[in-house]
Deep mutational scan, measured.
Amino acid sequence: EIRVRVEKDPELGFSISGGVGGRGNPFRPDDDGIFVTRVQPEGPASKLLQPGDKIIQANGYSFINIEHGQAVSLLKTFQNTVELIIVREV
Rank of each mutant, 00 (worst) to 15 (best):
D32P: 13
Q50V: 14
P10F: 05
Y61G: 01
V20C: 10
L49E: 04
I16A: 00
K47Y: 09
D31Y: 03
V20D: 05
G24D: 11
F14P: 04
E42G: 15
I2V: 05
Y61P: 02
E83F: 04
K54C: 05
L75N: 00
G60S: 10
I85G: 08
V39P: 02
L12C: 09
A58S: 03
G22D: 08
D53N: 00
E42A: 10
L84Y: 10
I85F: 08
Y61R: 13
Q40S: 11
Q40M: 12
Q50S: 10
E42L: 12
P29C: 08
A71T: 01
G24L: 10
S73A: 11
E1K: 15
V82I: 11
V36K: 01
I86E: 01
Q50M: 14
D31C: 06
T81R: 08
S15F: 10
P29D: 14
G69W: 13
D9P: 03
Q57A: 11
G60P: 03
S17L: 09
D30A: 11
G22P: 08
I66Q: 03
V6F: 13
I85P: 01
R88L: 01
A45V: 07
S17W: 05
L84D: 01
V82H: 01
D30M: 10
R38W: 14
G21F: 07
S15W: 07
A58T: 02
F35S: 03
F63L: 07
A58D: 03
A71S: 02
K76W: 05
G52L: 04
I86R: 02
G21P: 06
A58W: 02
R23W: 11
V82F: 05
I64N: 10
N65P: 04
D9V: 07
I55S: 00
R38Y: 13
I85Q: 12
Y61S: 09
I66S: 03
I86W: 02
E67H: 12
Q70T: 12
E83G: 02
K8Q: 05
I16W: 06
L75H: 02
I56V: 10
V39H: 01
R28G: 08
H68Y: 12
D9K: 14
D32T: 15
Q57E: 14
P44Y: 04
I85N: 14
K47E: 14
S46L: 06
G43P: 02
A71E: 01
T77F: 05
T37H: 09
R3P: 04
L12E: 05
G52W: 05
F78Q: 08
F14W: 04
V36L: 02
N25Y: 07
Q70V: 11
I2Y: 09
I34E: 02
L84A: 02
F14I: 07
R38S: 15
L75I: 06
I66L: 10
S46F: 12
P44C: 10
P10H: 09
F14Q: 01
L84R: 01
I16S: 00
V87C: 14
T77W: 07
S73M: 11
L84E: 03
E67V: 08
V4G: 02
D32S: 11
D30R: 11
S17Y: 02
K47G: 13
A58G: 08
K8I: 12
R88A: 02
K76N: 14
N65W: 04
I64A: 15
E42I: 07
G60R: 06
D32M: 10
I16P: 00
Y61D: 05
P41L: 06
E83A: 04
S62G: 05
S46M: 09
G21V: 06
A71W: 00
R23V: 12
S62Q: 08
K47R: 09
A58Y: 01
G18W: 00
V90W: 15
T37G: 08
L49N: 00
S15T: 13
T37W: 10
D31T: 06
N25E: 07
G18T: 04
V39R: 00
E7I: 15
K76L: 08
V82Y: 06
L74C: 06
L74R: 08
E11Q: 05
Q40R: 12
E42H: 14
S17G: 13
P41W: 06
V90E: 15
V90Q: 06
I55T: 01
D31F: 03
L49M: 08
R3E: 05
Q50D: 06
H68M: 11
I55A: 00
D53T: 01
G69E: 11
T77M: 10
E89I: 11
G43Q: 06
R88F: 04
I55M: 02
K8L: 13
N25T: 08
Q50K: 12
V82N: 00
I16Y: 05
E42Y: 15
E67W: 07
V20T: 14
N80K: 15
V72K: 13
I2F: 14
H68V: 09
Q40K: 12
T37A: 11
K47I: 07
G24C: 07
I66P: 01
S46G: 14
G33Q: 03
G13P: 10
G33L: 02
I2W: 03
V90H: 15
R88C: 00
E83M: 04
F14T: 00
K76C: 12
I2R: 06
R5Q: 10
L75Q: 02
Q70C: 11
Q70I: 13
V6Q: 00
L75G: 00
R23F: 15
K76I: 05
R5I: 15
L49H: 03
N80R: 14
P29I: 12
T77V: 07
D32R: 11
K54W: 03
N80L: 08
S73Q: 14
D31G: 06
I34Y: 02
N25K: 05
E11C: 13
L12A: 05
P10Q: 10
R38T: 09
V20Q: 11
L75P: 01
Q40C: 12
E42K: 09
E7P: 12
K47Q: 15
I64C: 14
D9H: 11
G33K: 03
S46K: 13
E42F: 12
T77L: 09
E67R: 14
I34M: 04
I64T: 12
V36G: 01
R3I: 09
N65Y: 05
K47W: 04
I86C: 08
V90L: 12
E7K: 15
G24V: 12
K8H: 06
F78T: 13
G19I: 02
R5M: 12
Y61C: 14
K54G: 00
S17D: 09
D30T: 11
T81D: 10
F35K: 01
A45Q: 05
G69D: 15
E7M: 15
D9A: 15
D32W: 07
S15N: 15
V20M: 08
K8V: 11
F63M: 09
A58V: 10
K54D: 02
D53H: 01
R5V: 13
G13T: 03
L74Y: 13
L12P: 05
E83N: 12
R28K: 15
G22V: 07
R23E: 10
R23H: 12
I85T: 14
T77Y: 09
I34C: 02
I85E: 15
K47H: 07
S73P: 03
K8F: 09
G69L: 09
G13L: 02
P44L: 05
R5P: 02
G19A: 05
K8M: 12
P41N: 09
I2E: 03
T81W: 09
L49C: 04
G22N: 12
I64G: 07
I55G: 00
P26H: 07
S46H: 15
G60F: 03
Q50N: 12
A71C: 05
G69V: 14
V20H: 11
D31I: 05
F63N: 01
R5T: 15
S15P: 00
V72A: 14
Y61I: 13
G69I: 14
S73E: 15
G21K: 15
I2M: 08
R28D: 13
G22T: 11
